[in-house]
Simulated scan of single mutants.
Amino acid sequence: MLHPPSTREFLHEFIGHYVALEGKLWKSLLLLLFRPGQLTLEYINGRRVRYIQPLRLYLTFSLIFFAVMKYTGHDGIKITPADHPVAAAAQEKDKTKPELMREDEPGEIANGTAELRQGIGKINAHWGEQADRFSRMSMDERNEVLTTAFYGYVPYAVFFMMPLFALCLKMLYLGSGRRYGEHLLFALHANGFAFLAMALMMVVPNVLGIVSWVLGLWLVFYTPVAMRRVYGGSRLATGVRWLVLMALHLIGITLAIGAAVGFGILR
C-alpha cells in the first residue's frame, strides 16, 4: 500500500537523484570542455546513460549565456545618436560594446526607413502600423522594444538554427555514412560548448587579458578539432569544411537574429 514518504526517505531520494545528476553533469562537462567531439562519439557509440542529454545540455548553456548577456550588460542592444551626451559618455567608458542600431542624427532611422515601412504595410497592414509606431518612438522606447524582442525571440531563432547546422554538416560530409541524427548530436554539443565558452568570457575575471584570449582561442579551434575527432579526415580537408560551415552558419545566424528582432518589433 502506498504511503507518503517520510522526511528521511524524501532526503535519501533527493540526494541520490542529485548526486546522479551531478555525476552526469561533471562527466559531460569534462568531455565537452577538454575533449572536443568525444561526447558526441560517446552518444553515437551508445554510451549515453552516464551523460547529460544533448538537448538538455544545449538548452541549459544557451539559457545561461542569454541570462549572463542580459544581466551583465554585454548585449549592446541600443539605439544611440552620435551627438547624445549620455551616449557619448557611455561609449567612452566602454568602447567595446557595440550598438544594434545607431543614429548619426535624430530622426535618421525614421527618415531612412520610410520606403521600407511602406513596403511592409503593403504586405501586412498591421505590420505597417507597428513599423510606423516604432519609427515614432523615442530613443529609450525603441531600446526597450529592441531589448524585449531580442531576448523574447532570438534564443528560439538560434535554437531552430541547429537543424540547419546539422544539414550543413550532412552536406559537407556526404558519403561519410553518418546519419542526420548524428550530425544533429554534433550540432547540439558544439553549439552548447560555444554558449558556455562565451558565457565564461563574460563572467570570469580577465586576469592580464589572458583568460579571454585563451577562451577565445579555444572557441575558434574547438569545432575543427571536434570535427576531425568525430568525422576523421585530413587537417586540410577538415579546415576547408570548417570554414564553409562557419560561413554558412554566420549567414544563417545573422538572418535568424534579424528576422527574430523584426518579428518582435512588428508583432
Rank of each mutant, 00 (worst) to 15 (best):
D94K: 06
Y51T: 02
A256T: 06
H3R: 05
A90K: 15
P81A: 10
G73K: 05
V203I: 15
R136S: 08
S135W: 00
M227D: 01
V211P: 11
H74C: 07
F263M: 01
R102W: 14
A87Q: 04
V158I: 12
E108C: 09
M201F: 03
I77T: 01
N111I: 02
V244F: 00
H12C: 03
G258R: 07
A194H: 13
Q118D: 12
T80D: 10
A125M: 05
M139Y: 00
G262D: 07
M246L: 15
G107H: 14
Y180D: 05
F134V: 00
L167A: 14
L29W: 07
L266N: 02
A197T: 03
F10Q: 13
I120K: 08
L164T: 12
F134S: 12
L30N: 02
Y231G: 11
V207D: 03
V204T: 14
I109D: 00
A125L: 13
V214E: 07
T254I: 07
H12P: 03
G119Q: 10
E22P: 11
Y43G: 10
M139A: 01
P4T: 04
I210F: 07
Q91F: 05
N191C: 13
S234V: 02
V220N: 08
M202K: 02
L169A: 07
E103Q: 13
L255S: 11
R267L: 04
R178E: 04
V225D: 03
G262T: 04
L243D: 01
G23H: 03
F159N: 03
T238I: 14
L25H: 15
V211E: 10
V19L: 04
I52T: 07
F10H: 03
I77L: 11
H74S: 14
L55F: 13
Y231I: 08
R136I: 01
P81W: 11
F195D: 00
L169T: 01
F66P: 08
P4Y: 08
L266C: 10
L217I: 10
R136Y: 06
G112R: 01
G112Y: 14
L184H: 04
R267Y: 07
R102Q: 08
V225A: 15
M171Q: 11
A190S: 15
I109M: 06
E129F: 08
G181A: 06
H126W: 10
V154Q: 10
I64S: 03
A190V: 12
H84Y: 04
L169I: 05
M227C: 08
T80M: 11
L243A: 13
R267M: 14
I120E: 11
W218K: 12
G177E: 14
A237S: 14
V86C: 00
P155F: 06
V207S: 06
V154P: 14
R48F: 06
I109R: 03
T7N: 09
E108W: 08
A149W: 04
Y151C: 07
D83F: 15
A131S: 12
A247D: 00
I79Y: 04
H3S: 13
Y58N: 04
T238N: 09
D75Q: 08
K122A: 08
G216R: 02
V230D: 08
G177L: 02
W213D: 03
A89S: 13
L236E: 06
A88T: 12
